[in-house]
């Protein structure tokens, strides 16, 4: 027992590693604040384009979305980070994470928002158009507010996944929470910093998981 505590919950090491790990936390938060809106906007564009009637628009769009849903995000990230320099383009870890997430999470957000938009009855659009609202106004004031509300649990769930995914930044040397924890671990030869990172993730994300679990349960029960 003593040994376990010494290895995983070593107070001395925790104290020394705390500033390093907290710096990582700050970067994780900043990274999330960048990639979540970025992915959401990308998804919104995809979902709006998917409303086009023309198959010439819809099919390539579906292929795009499926392509990036089939790709593990880490593969996309490594492809950008290790592949692009061969094309003479060196972007750095941070930019690669931003682009990879935009492509990957944008596709997920896009599918969720598309489902939300399609859940709104046709009559809502007709009523809005009959009062003279334009297509764009109808989307902005009538359809989207309802669509987002309908798929709020899915949007929140995806956002949780995106925040967790920022840990991939550690692979391309973005100094986020996991990266910093591993740095501290490799200096101290003790896994306590990684345990710290795990505890921090848990403390921050647990409330979100609780909330989601309640929302999802309600949604499924309502539909069943």
């Amino acid at each position: 027992m003593e040994e376990i505590v010494q290895s995983f919950f070593n107070a001395e090491i925790a104290e020394a590693a705390l500033p390093i790990v907290l710096a990582g936390l700050l970067n994780t938060i900043l990274l999330s604040l960048l990639v979540v809106p970025l992915g959401f906007i990308g998804g919104l564009v995809l979902a709006l384009l998917a409303q086009a009637r023309s198959r010439a628009v819809r099919w390539p769009l579906m292929a795009w979305v499926d392509f990036f849903r089939a790709f593990p995000p880490l593969v996309l990230l490594v492809l950008l980070f290790a592949g692009l320099p061969f094309a003479g383009l060196e972007l750095g870890g941070f930019a690669c994470v931003a682009i990879a997430f935009f492509l990957n999470t944008g596709s997920y957000y896009g599918e969720i928002l598309r489902a939300g938009i399609e859940s709104i009855p046709r009559g809502q659009v007709e009523a809005a158009r009959s009062t003279g609202l334009s297509g764009l106004q109808t989307m902005t004031y009538v359809v989207l507010p309802q669509a987002v509300r309908n798929v709020l649990p899915d949007l929140l769930s995806n956002t949780l996944e995106v925040v967790k995914l920022t840990s991939l930044g550690s692979v391309v040397a973005v100094p986020e929470l996991l990266f910093q924890a591993r740095q501290a671990q490799s200096v101290t030869y003790n896994p306590t910093p990684i345990v710290m990172a795990a505890v921090i993730y848990f403390l921050i994300l647990w409330p979100v998981v609780r909330l989601l679990s309640r929302l999802e349960n309600r949604a499924l029960v309502g539909r069943g």
Binding site: S7, F8, L160, K164, L165, T166, S167, L168, S170, L178, R182, Q185, N190, P191, I194, V195, A197, A198, Y201, F202, L205, W206, V208, V209, R210, L212, S213
Partner: peptide, 21 residues
């Protein structure tokens, strides 16, 4: 809740680099 909150990569790293201790 625990395994929904933790990023999978964190769990992998914890198991691989932590458990040997």
């Amino acid at each position: 809740d625990l395994f929904r909150s933790l990023p999978p990569l964190v769990i992998i790293v914890l198991l691989y680099f932590g458990l040997p201790s």
